[in-house]
């Protein structure tokens, strides 16, 4: 097992211009996420939280600095390799769930497996087991359109976990849910992440939910600062 799931090393990100001309979003950020680490990330809108997640997922490359995911330097990989790396080591959870409406609950969870080329029955069993753990065992074949928001996010969490990634990135996973449902979903996510032993980096605006993490970070003026709990 690697000793870091994700490492940022002096990462700087500018948008919209070459060299130093662009708008500075992230500046000289360094951190490491060990396996099993659970970290929350806060910050005002536009401070670059999503950018940080995109960098972590290898969807974009930084202007300067290096990012290591599962021990591989993303800058050294081509687009296709980064995609494969993401597929194997990352799970993503979005604020708006992003389930494919024309697929059933189970099929949505199986989707990363299909993409990765897994077709074995073991994957189906794992998906079913995950569904059971989020309390949706009876909804396997339902169209996702019939689910409530909380249920949708639970399906999305199952999808993120189905290939047992080392790291889950979650962008405001409760942002579209009411407070109570949000808390339930967050608890479920943390419980699953802990039992699976993978790391989790999640963005939230809620102090309460941020408090559930092992560590709390805040983005401010492009810098990452530890947030002191109240």
């Amino acid at each position: 097992m690697l000793d870091t799931a994700l490492a940022f090393d002096n990462v700087t990100m500018r948008f919209g211009g070459p060299g130093n001309a662009g708008r500075l979003v992230l500046e000289d950020i360094s951190f490491q996420l060990a396996p099993g680490d659970i970290v929350s990330l806060a910050g005002r809108s536009g401070t670059g939280k999503s950018t940080l997640l995109h960098l972590a997922a290898g969807i974009t490359l930084p202007t300067a600095g290096s990012i290591r995911l599962a021990g591989r330097d993303l800058a050294q990989l081509d687009e296709s390799r980064r995609t494969t790396l993401r597929r194997l080591h990352l799970g993503l959870v979005f604020q708006f769930f992003h389930l494919l409406p024309h697929l059933s609950v189970l099929e949505n969870i199986l989707l990363p497996g299909w993409i990765a080329g897994h077709k074995d029955a073991a994957l189906n069993e794992r998906a079913a087991a995950l569904l059971g753990r989020v309390g949706l065992a009876g909804r396997v074949g339902d169209p996702v359109a019939q689910l409530s928001g909380g249920e949708m996010q639970r399906v999305a969490i199952c999808r993120a976990l189905v290939l047992s990634p080392a790291l889950i990135l979650a962008d405001e996973p409760t942002g579209s849910l009411d407070e109570k449902t949000g808390r339930q979903v967050m608890d479920l996510l943390l419980e699953l992440v802990r039992s699976e032993g993978c790391s989790l980096l999640y963005v939230t605006h809620s102090r309460e939910l941020a408090g559930l993490a092992d560590r709390r970070w805040r983005l401010h003026d492009g810098h990452l600062e530890p947030e002191v709990p109240e």
Binding site: T83, R87, L90, L92, L111, I115
Partner: peptide, 12 residues
Amino acid sequence: GLLRSLGATRRQ
């Protein structure tokens, strides 16, 4: 975009 973020390659 979703498929891509879930790890689908361009070729796929």
